[in-house]
Design a protein around this nucleic acid. Structure first.
Length: 221
DNA sequence: GACCAGGCACATC
DNA sequence: GATGTGCATGGT
């Protein structure tokens, strides 16, 4: 039941919006940095911050690891929360250098769940950031849950309104084929839907999913 | 000027 | 274990 519904929704979203080409980033490392920078922040602000790092030719693990934290904070200022995010990026770099000699390739040998647990030990990397890194940067079979995803799942009665992160992520993982490309595109399409229609305010109108039976719930966050 | 944006950790009850 | 708060820029 849920599986069919998720499949139907996916087809509707894909036919309406087409492929979203996620994650917008040229390298694995850029995607990881972007995953931290985008925490509770508009993507256009993240692009400015990433642009600053690129212009300074600093977008490699070695350079960021060596970079002075106050300089890093200054460069990522447009992404907001720049002091805390500079710390979080540094925490990730320290983890990478202490455990994997600073090489992202060395993560390839690690089992997905074990890697997820390790990422979650890094201060500043929570469930969504870890999962974004795992799916979009490291190409693991993981479904990312963000604000848009939670709002979408609740409004369409796919999940209990006070479900936690793991529960929502499990909804997709358990009812979709285990396909990295599908997980990638589905999440990106939910975000696209969220940006254009499924907002907290104003409420949904002219939503592409309006024709779906039993899926429209106007109130709730 | 208010509201929102691809969260997270920490304090407090 | 739930609930509240700080962190901050930039677009609408």
């Amino acid at each position: 039941m849920t599986a069919e519904k998720l499949n139907e929704i996916y087809k509707l979203l894909y036919s309406r919006f087409g492929p979203q080409h996620w994650w917008p980033g040229e390298t694995t490392f850029e995607i990881i940095i972007g995953a931290v920078l985008t925490q509770n922040t508009n993507w256009t602000n993240v692009e400015k911050a990433v642009g600053n790092l690129k212009s300074a030719s600093l977008l490699t693990p070695e350079k960021i690891h060596d970079l002075d934290i106050s300089r890093l904070a200054e460069l990522i200022r447009p992404a907001g929360y720049f002091n805390i995010k500079a710390k979080r990026i540094k925490n990730f770099m320290n983890w990478l250098f202490e455990n994997y000699r600073g090489s992202l390739e060395n993560l390839d040998n690690i089992n997905t769940q074990r890697l997820r647990e390790q990422l979650l030990t890094v201060n500043g990397i929570g469930a969504e950031t870890a999962d974004s890194i795992l799916l979009y940067a490291l190409k693991r079979e993981i479904f990312v849950v963000d604000t848009y995803t939670a709002r979408f799942a609740i409004r369409h009665h796919l999940i209990d309104p006070d479900a936690g992160y793991e529960q929502i992520s499990d909804l997709f993982l358990s009812n979709l084929p285990q396909d990295i490309k599908l997980f990638n595109e589905y999440h990106a399409l939910i975000v696209r839907l969220g940006k254009e229609f499924c907002k907290p305010n104003p409420k949904c109108s002219n939503c592409p999913l309006e024709e779906l039976p039993h899926t429209i719930e106007i109130d709730c966050f």
